[in-house]
Design a protein around this nucleic acid. Structure first.
Ligand SMILES: NC(=O)c1ccc[n+]([C@@H]2O[C@H](COP(=O)([O-])OP(=O)(O)OC[C@H]3O[C@@H](n4cnc5c(N)ncnc54)[C@H](O)[C@@H]3O)[C@@H](O)[C@H]2O)c1
Ligand SMILES: NC(=O)c1ccc[n+]([C@@H]2O[C@H](COP(=O)([O-])OP(=O)(O)OC[C@H]3O[C@@H](n4cnc5c(N)ncnc54)[C@H](O)[C@@H]3O)[C@@H](O)[C@H]2O)c1
Lengths: 221, 221
DNA sequence: CGGGTATTGTGATAACTATCACGATACTCT
DNA sequence: AGAGTATCGTGATAGTTATCACAATACCCG
C-alpha cells in the first residue's frame, strides 16, 4: 500500500478512468467478481498493469479470488475524486460546446454543468441543454463564484482562449479543460489540461503514412 | 539523422502536431526564423525536447540561426503525413459527430470529409455540413470503398461502436478514430486510436481532489 | 579573415513506466 | 485439516522517454 507523496504516473490515472467503464460493463453482464485477467481483457490492459495501477493506492482485491466488481468501481471513483459533484461551467457554446453540454455521460459521472457562457448576443438566453440557458460572458465571474464552479471548460476559438481562461480563474475555478488549440497560461494554483482532438487525428495520419501501404481490395472479377 | 526502423515516441508525434500550430502562429506574427527556444516558449516545451523530437527525422535547422518557420512547418507536415489529402468518413451524426463535421480546422489540415452516416432514418438526407448530406448506414461500405476513405471516425453510442468499426473495416479504411467509450477490436492491418474526453476530465478531477484545497476568495467587506 | 556569438544536433545520463516473476494468501474439495 | 488451485501484491528488472551538456557549425562584424 502506498498513497503518500509518491508520484502516480499520469497513464495510470488515465487507465483508472477506463477501468471504471469496463467494470460497469462487466457488472451489467453479471460479474459480481472480476479477476485482473478478465478486467484486463475487457479493457485491453495487461493483468499485471492493472494490479500495479491499483497497488499505488492500496489493496482492493482478495488473493485467489479477485475484486468485487461494485466495490472496486466505488473505490476507483474515490481515488479519482468522482465520489462527489464537480460544479462545472462551459464557455463558448458553439458546435463543440453544444455537444459537450449535451453529453449525458458527464452528468452521470458527477460533473454538474451549472452554467454556460457565450459572447454572441444572439445566443444569450437560449436553452442549450435541459434547464441550462446560455448567459452572457459578462456574467461569468459572478455566476462562477456564486455557483462555486470548480471546473471550467473552454470551447471558444483559439484567439479568445487566453482571455476566457483569465475570466475562469477570476471566477474561482480550480481546474480548466481547454479544447482550443492554444497553450493558455494560468496561475500556479489552477490546474490546466489541454485536449487536442486534432493531434489525435494527426497521430493517426502519421501512423497510416509511415506504415506499409496495403492494396485496397479490388472487385472480384 | 535517423528515420529508419527506429521507434518514435508517441509523445513526440503528439508534440510535432502542436509545433505546427505554434509555427503557424509565429509565422503570422512575422517570425521568418524561429529558434528552438522561441518555439519552445510558444508551445510550452523545452528547447532540448524540440530539438530531440526533430532529430529523430533529420536535420532541419541551421546552427547559430534556428529554423526557417515556413520550411519547418512544411517538413513537419511531411513527417506526419499531412502533405496529402486524407479522405475521411464519419459515422454517427449526433451531437459530437455534428461538431466534428463542422470543425473547419480538419479541412484546413488535409482531412476531407467525404461522407457521413447515421442509422436514424429521420436524419438521412440532412445537409450536416457544407455539401455533405447524411447517408444511411447501409451505404457505408459501398460509399467508403468508392471514395477510397482512409480514415473512419466513430461517434456512435458505445453499444454500436464495434459493429460500426466492423463496417468501416469492410469499407476499406486504414485507420479509425474512436470517440465511443468502448474498446473496439480491429484487424491487424487497421490502425485504431481511441479518444477519451471523459478520461481527460476524470484526470482533472483527480488532480483537483488530490491537491491541497485553496480557500475560495471571500468578498472584500 | 579571424574571433565572438548564437543555436543546433546528439551522445550520455537521469527519470520514469511497464513487465515479469514469484511469494503470499484465500478459497475449494475431499 | 491439508493439498491443490487461483489470483493478488510487489520488489526486481527491462524498456522507454526526457533532460543535460557540449561539440559542431553558421553567421556577424570589424
Ligand atoms: N468543433 C470541433 O469538433 C472541435 C474539435 C476540437 C477542438 N475544437 C476547438 O474548440 C473551439 C470551439 O470550436 P467550435 O467548432 O465549437 O467553434 P464555434 O465557432 O462553433 O464555437 C465557438 C463559440 O464561442 C463563442 N465565443 C467566441 N469568442 C468568445 C468569447 N471571447 N467568450 C465567449 N464565447 C466566445 C462563439 O460565439 C461561438 O458560439 C475551437 O477553439 C476549436 O479549435 C473544436
Ligand atoms: N457529446 C460529446 O460531447 C461526447 C464526448 C465524448 C465522447 N462522446 C461519445 O461519442 C458518441 C456519440 O455521442 P453523442 O453525444 O454525439 O451522442 P448522440 O446520441 O447525440 O449521437 C449518436 C448518433 O449515432 C447514431 N447512431 C446510433 N447507432 C448507430 C449505428 N449503429 N450506426 C450509425 N449511426 C448510429 C444516432 O442516430 C445518433 O445520431 C458516444 O459514444 C459518446 O460516448 C460524446
Amino acid at each position: 500500500m502506498k498513497q503518500k507523496g509518491i508520484k502516480i504516473p499520469e497513464a495510470t490515472i488515465k487507465r483508472l478512468s477506463a477501468y471504471i467503464n469496463c467494470l460497469e460493463r462487466l457488472d451489467d453482464k453479471g460479474y459480481q467478481v472480476v479477476s485482473s485477467e478478465l478486467l484486463g481483457e475487457s479493457c485491453q490492459v495487461s493483468p499485471a498493469q492493472i494490479r500495479k495501477d491499483l497497488s499505488y493506492f492500496g489493496e482492493f482485491g482478495v488473493r485467489g479470488v479477485g475484486y468485487t466488481t461494485k466495490t472496486l468501481t466505488e473505490q476507483i471513483k474515490v481515488i479519482l475524486g468522482l465520489d462527489r459533484i464537480w460544479p462545472t461551467v462551459l464557455v463558448g457554446v458553439g458546435h463543440l460546446g453544444h455537444a459537450l453540454l449535451n453529453f449525458t455521460f458527464f452528468r452521470e459521472h458527477g460533473y454538474r454543468m451549472v452554467a454556460a457562457f457565450d459572447s454572441d448576443p444572439r445566443k444569450i438566453g437560449t436553452e442549450v441543454a435541459e434547464g441550462l440557458h446560455i448567459q452572457p460572458i459578462e456574467e461569468l465571474v459572478e455566476t462562477s463564484n456564486r455557483e462555486k464552479a470548480a471546473i471550467g471548460i473552454v470551447t471558444v476559438p483559439a484567439s479568445s482562449a487566453q482571455s476566457t481562461a483569465d475570466l475562469l480563474v477570476e471566477g474561482g475555478v480550480s481546474g480548466i479543460l481547454n479544447f482550443a488549440p492554444f497553450k493558455v497560461k494560468v496561475p500556479e494554483h489552477v490546474t490546466l489540461r489541454n485536449v487536442s482532438i486534432v493531434s489525435e487525428l494527426d497521430n493517426l495520419a502519421y501512423l497510416l503514412s509511415s506504415k506499409k501501404p496495403r492494396r485496397r481490395r479490388k472487385k472480384i472479377k
